[in-house]
Each structure stands twice: as structure tokens, then as C-alpha cells.
Design a protein around this nucleic acid. Structure first.
Lengths: 197, 197
DNA sequence: CATAATGCAGACAGGTCTGTCTGAAGGAGT
DNA sequence: ACTCCTTCAGACAGACCTGTCTGCATTATG
């Protein structure tokens, strides 16, 4: 089992995750029912409950997959630059590229957290993701020589979240440039550097 | 009709709006059903449909009331200061006071927008609110002599939204101080001033 | 070949939601 | 006193949701 099969049909689990990603992210976790997920995945309802156990666990798996994808994307973007300052700005540039995608619908964790009540698997997934983002910003801020790395890291996360919200709700394509400029100013103020963008 | 009645029982409309504000804001627009709203308001179901026409219109009225309340609160906070720079910071301080309220549950417009699909009355209400916030920040940025008032106004809105998100999702009481410090730095960078907090 | 595992299809139950409708009670103005 | 209007109480329909269950087909393995 679990052997490599290159061109064969993906497993029920993979098809369910792909369908959940498309539908939950596009229309929201609460609005999309189980029936639409299994129909979109071409999977029987019993397979979903055998594989994941329930809708909440499927939502959790969907968020975990998003988490892994964002970690990959941002890790690659950071690795393309050498200085911590450029690496911090690269995070905002990578976010800006997401804004231009036609299927962009904001941060999946913020949206799922707003839909689901506090507590539960959604909250766990959101905490894990936001903790990773915070650590990324704080680590880069420390490497850049910020006087208070925690403060700069938190400030950059404010910009990151705010940019995602504005891109979602204001249909404003200029927000990526604005957040990058603001990040540049905050980095300069926190490190005492005088480099401009 | 509509005469002044000081101590009498509020009208069905007012009770419905109060109940909608409590329940929708605390638990979300989708999670709370009509039955719970009318029970909490002590109102018959027919009264709700006669007064508002449907749930979506009730949600719209709830958001409009929130809009008016925030406009009042921020307008008062701004009026307590003299210089545009202090007025901008006063907006963040007023937001920080909201964070400490035990019933704080984030920005009602972001949460409702995340729950409802795009388009519809929720989107209209959110657009109106966010437009007002943007104009407030941009006007104050212009009065403060920013080189690019639109850019500074948008940057401050990023911080405002990001702080609300973090206060909601991270249970972090330090975010108000962080956003205020970041706003101070961005204002200084945009106006060329050297004043510190 | 036989057997076990996996997946598909769909019925079914129990609950909740929105919205409509009926019928009656109470208060204000004429 | 009479009438209009608002409001309350609740039944009802139609739709949707989650989760469980019963069969049947396919496939891999002993």
C-alpha cells in the first residue's frame, strides 16, 4: 500500500483534499456542505467519513495542507535572497504575487477562524500557522539586527495581515506596494539603517 | 408614532437590533439563526419579517448600527486632540481600548465579510465602513503634511486591520502598543518629522 | 481461486434553517 | 365604543445539513 503510482488516479484522500481546498477556500467552510465536496471529488460519502472521520477533521486537514503550501512558498522566497532585510521584503513580495491570482480569496486561516467559533480544530490550525509566521518575522528581524526583534516581527505581521485583509475586501491591487513600502520604513526605523527600497 | 417614550419598553425594531448586535457579533452571522434572535429579543417572528424583510436585511441593519457606533467613537477620540499626528494616534488608542473589552470579537465587518459570500448587502456595508476609515486616515495624513497622504492613509489602515486581526486571533494584549508604535514610525517616515511617541 | 480491503452509490434519520401563514391580544386615536 | 395597527405565539412547509447504514463493484493479495 501507499506505493508510488505516477499516472494512476489519485487516492480518495487526495481527491477529497483537492476538492476541499477548492470549495472551502473559494466559498467558505460553513457555506460548502459535505455533499458538494464529495460530488466535486467524485468520492462516496462513506469514504470521507472513513478517511477523515467528519467535516471538522476534513477542514483541519485542508488548513494543514494550506499551512504546508505557504511554508514552502515563503521558504523558497526567503532563500532567494541573502540579507535578512531583503528576505523580510521578499515575504511581502511573495504575498503580493498571491493577490494577483484570480482565485485569491484572502488568508484561509483568518476566514476559517472568523467562520468557526473559538476553540476546536480550526483554532488549533490557525494558531499553528500564525505562530510559524510570527517566528519567521521575528527570526529575520533578529538577524537584521533590530533593536527589539519581537516588536519588529509583530509589526511586520500586522502589515502582513492587514495587506491580506485589504486585498480581499477592497479589491485594491496597490496594497502590495503599500505594504512593502511600509515594511521598508518599519525595518529602517527598527534597525537604524538608512537604506531605501 | 415614533414619539418620545423615555422609560417605556423599546420598540420591536430596537430590541431586534440589540439582540442581533449581541448574538451576531459574539457568535457570527451564519451560526446564529433567526429563532435565537427573536427569542433573545422577545419578539415574534412575524415582527422581524415585517420590520426588516429578512435575515440579510437584519444583518445589514446590524452592520449599519456598528458603523454608526464606530464613527461616533472615533470622531470623539479624534476631537480630543489638536494636532493631526496626535489625532491619528488617537484612532489606534481608541481601537486598543476596544481590545480590552471582554466582549471584543474583532472587526464585525471583516468577520461578516469572511462569512458571507462576495456581493450582497454585507459587502455593501463593509465597503461603506472601510471607505469611511480610509477617508479618515487619508484626511488626517494630509492635514499632517504627509508627502503622499493616500499612501500614509493606506499604510495606517493596514496597521489598523492587522491589529484587529491579531487581537482577535492571537489573544495578544500587547498588539495595541505595537500598532501605535508602528503608526508613530510610519507617520514620522511619511512626514519627515522627528517627533517620538 | 478465494478472501479481504477499498471505494462507489445512495437511501435514511434526525436536526436546523429560513420564510410564510393563521389567529388572537393589546393599545391608541376618533 | 369602535377601529386600526402593532405585536405576540406558534404551526407549517420546504430545503439543507451532518452522519450512519446497506449493498455492490473493483482490485490486490494469500
Amino acid at each position: 500500500m501507499a506505493s508510488v503510482q505516477s499516472t494512476a488516479k489519485p487516492s480518495a484522500r487526495e481527491r477529497l483534499l483537492a476538492a476541499a481546498n477548492e470549495l472551502f477556500y473559494a466559498e467558505g467552510v460553513q457555506s460548502v456542505g459535505i455533499d458538494r465536496v464529495i460530488e466535486h471529488a467524485g468520492v462516496a460519502k462513506a469514504s470521507l467519513y472513513n478517511t477523515f472521520g467528519g467535516k471538522e477533521q476534513l477542514v483541519r486537514a485542508y488548513l494543514d495542507a494550506r499551512h504546508a503550501g505557504t511554508v514552502d512558498r515563503l521558504t523558497r522566497a526567503v532563500a532567494e535572497h541573502d540579507t535578512p532585510r531583503e528576505q523580510m521584503l521578499a515575504v511581502f513580495e511573495a504575498q503580493g504575487r498571491q493577490f494577483d491570482r484570480p482565485d485569491f480569496r484572502g488568508c484561509a486561516f483568518i476566514r476559517a477562524g472568523a467562520e468557526a467559533g473559538s476553540g476546536g480544530l480550526v483554532q488549533e490550525a490557525a494558531d499553528a500557522f500564525r505562530g510559524w509566521m510570527r517566528e519567521l518575522f521575528t527570526r529575520l528581524a533578529a538577524e537584521a539586527g533590530a533593536a527589539d526583534p519581537d516588536a519588529l516581527g509583530q509589526q511586520l505581521q500586522l502589515l502582513y495581515d492587514g495587506a491580506g485583509i485589504s486585498a480581499l475586501m477592497d479589491h485594491d491591487s496597490t496594497v502590495a506596494a503599500t505594504s512593502r513600502a511600509a515594511a521598508t520604513a518599519l525595518i529602517a526605523a527598527a534597525t537604524g539603517a538608512s537604506a531605501e527600497a
